[in-house]
């Protein structure tokens, strides 16, 4: 089965056509998507800046991360679900949109950056938990994460201006 036919099958699902045909569905999905990404980026920003050496509301980087990460993840799940539903409403166009594909790649890179940080510098966090400035590896990780997430939001907004909205 080709990718083309899979995309067409997704397009023909009843949930996909329901999103296309209900005038309020897409703006509601977009609003939830923006709300979710604001929480994802807003909380990540606080942690990124702390890793970079900008003080947050508590001295311990470990406690700050543990405190905010649950909110980031819950919001990320909401962003992923609403994003998937928007994709399903018009899969062929999204799959052919450069900004959309690039956005997915950058999100994956941001995920890898997080995995790398958690499996290296974060393991030794007891040694630098309240240090200011934090070690260079933590500062690099925070800066890289910040740049990647800003790029994701930038690409996301550009999808809305470049997507071919041919529904039928």
């Amino acid at each position: 089965m080709s990718l083309e036919s899979v995309l067409q099958q997704v397009n023909d699902l009843s949930i996909s056509s329901a999103i296309r045909e209900n005038v309020n569905a897409f703006p509601i999905l977009e609003s939830l998507h923006v709300l979710g990404l604001a929480i994802v980026f807003g909380t990540i920003l606080i942690v990124d800046l702390r890793l970079f050496g900008v003080a947050a509301h508590r001295p311990s980087a470990k406690r700050l991360t543990a405190e905010l990460l649950p909110y980031t993840w819950v919001a990320f799940v909401m962003v992923a679900i609403t994003g998937l539903l928007m994709f399903m409403s018009n899969p062929v166009s999204y799959a052919n949109n450069t900004q959309f594909l690039l956005k997915l790649v950058i999100i994956a890179v941001a995920g890898l950056n997080m995995v790398w940080f958690h499996s290296t510098t974060y393991r030794r966090i007891a040694e630098w938990d309240e240090d200011m400035p934090p070690p260079i590896a933590a500062r690099v990780s925070g800066a890289v994460s910040f740049i990647l997430w800003v790029t994701v939001i930038f690409l996301g907004r550009w999808i809305g201006f470049t997507l071919e909205t041919l529904f039928f």
Binding site: I39, G42, T43, L45, I153
Partner: peptide
């Protein structure tokens, strides 16, 4: 895009 980035800063801080 800048508008959304600023929204995220407000929402993160306000939250």
């Amino acid at each position: 895009t800048f508008h959304i980035l600023a929204i995220a800063v407000v929402i993160g801080s306000a939250l």
